[in-house]
């Protein structure tokens, strides 16, 4: 067990280091900005006094490394500073939107993960059948289409031509769960389409890869029925690749979420990020990036920990 614990500790340590490095990059990005931030934000007409005042407000007069640790310290306590655009606390703006984004991603994941795994296993089982071929072509199509294309097609057919769902997902803070579910449905379906296709293809590939191993042939030659070969001999060994597939795609949801939120005007972090980028509202951009990156790093970490745990060689050392 010692080796396993060591391995886990190492991987988690690496994750923490990565997170730290990511925070440095995101912070350093601000330093890289050509010209003076204060002058850029306040414009040419700003008087030296207002510029100085602004710099002091942002702490720009301090040394970069001190500012970095101030910023990181604040971020760890949930304080991301103040928005340049409206002077409101970034954390206050972010919190409800983060909840919305999580809800959307969770809904998409709840639909797509079981769907994709089932379809992937089926496609692997019946490979080269008509089902597999149709699945291959349609998943390729859905992967290759930009999220906004799928989104608008869904709006056209499920909101405009057949008004089943609303085309704009404006969620009020006091909407009940069913209402929220209803309004989140279209963006969630869009995300599901993209992610399911990805996950299904990767699951299929992982299982087909596995079915070629000698121990699967051995199981067949022992007279083990087909379903039992899959469940007892293939799936246990496919856990690591499948965990990876799922984590990778959940991470992919993060990128997808940004576009889908814009298409459906969904009040999430992605929408906020895009708005802030066009306003060049740096504290908000940094906060959003940090949240997305942290989620991403965390999911990759979980995937690796999962594969380590599912490896019999590591669970049962010699």
């Amino acid at each position: 067990m010692n080796g396993l614990a060591m391995l886990m500790a190492k991987r988690i340590g690496l994750g923490l280091i990565t997170l730290f490095a990511v925070s440095v990059i995101i912070f350093a990005a601000l330093e890289l900005m050509p010209g003076d931030l204060a002058e850029q934000v306040l414009g040419q007409s700003a008087t030296p006094e207002t510029v100085a005042q602004f710099r002091k407000e942002l702490g720009l007069d301090k040394a970069p490394h001190i500012r970095y640790f101030d910023w990181l310290g604040g971020a760890l306590q949930g304080d991301f500073g103040v928005s340049l655009a409206n002077k409101r606390s970034v954390a206050d703006q972010l919190a409800p939107r983060f909840a919305n984004t999580l809800f959307l991603a969770a809904l998409a994941a709840a639909i797509s993960v079981p769907l994709a795994l089932t379809l992937g296993v089926l496609a692997a089982l019946y490979r080269n059948s008509i089902f597999d071929r149709v699945a291959n072509v349609s998943t390729l199509t859905s992967i290759s289409s930009p999220e906004f294309f799928l989104g608008y097609v869904l709006i056209l057919f499920l909101a405009v031509k057949n008004p089943i769902f609303p085309s704009i997902s404006n969620i009020s803070p006091n909407a009940d769960f069913m209402e929220q579910l209803y309004r989140t449905m279209l963006p969630a379906i869009t995300l599901t389409l993209v992610v399911t296709a990805h996950m299904m293809r990767m699951t299929r590939a992982a299982i087909i890869n596995l079915l070629a191993s000698p121990y699967i042939e051995m199981a067949r030659l022992k007279g083990v029925p087909r379903w039992r070969v899959i469940v007892r001999h293939a799936l246990v060994n496919a856990l690591a690749p499948i965990i990876n597939v799922v984590a990778l795609n959940l991470a992919y949801l993060i990128t997808g979420v940004v576009l889908v939120e814009v298409v459906f005007v969904y009040p999430g972090v992605g929408q906020l990020l895009v708005d802030s980028v066009s306003k060049r509202d740096l504290p908000v951009v940094q906060a959003c990036c940090l949240i997305f990156a942290a989620t991403y790093v965390l999911l990759n970490l979980l995937a690796d920990v999962g594969s380590i745990l599912s490896n019999p060689r590591l669970r049962h050392p010699r």
């Binding site: 000698p214 121990y215 030659l221 007279g223 060994n237």
Partner: peptide, 24 residues
Amino acid sequence: LRALRGSRIAYVAQSAAASFNPSH
């Protein structure tokens, strides 16, 4: 055929290391 395999006709593969399922 399946009922026959393993019970009346059995197979020993070249590489036992690859032919045993690593998870059981």
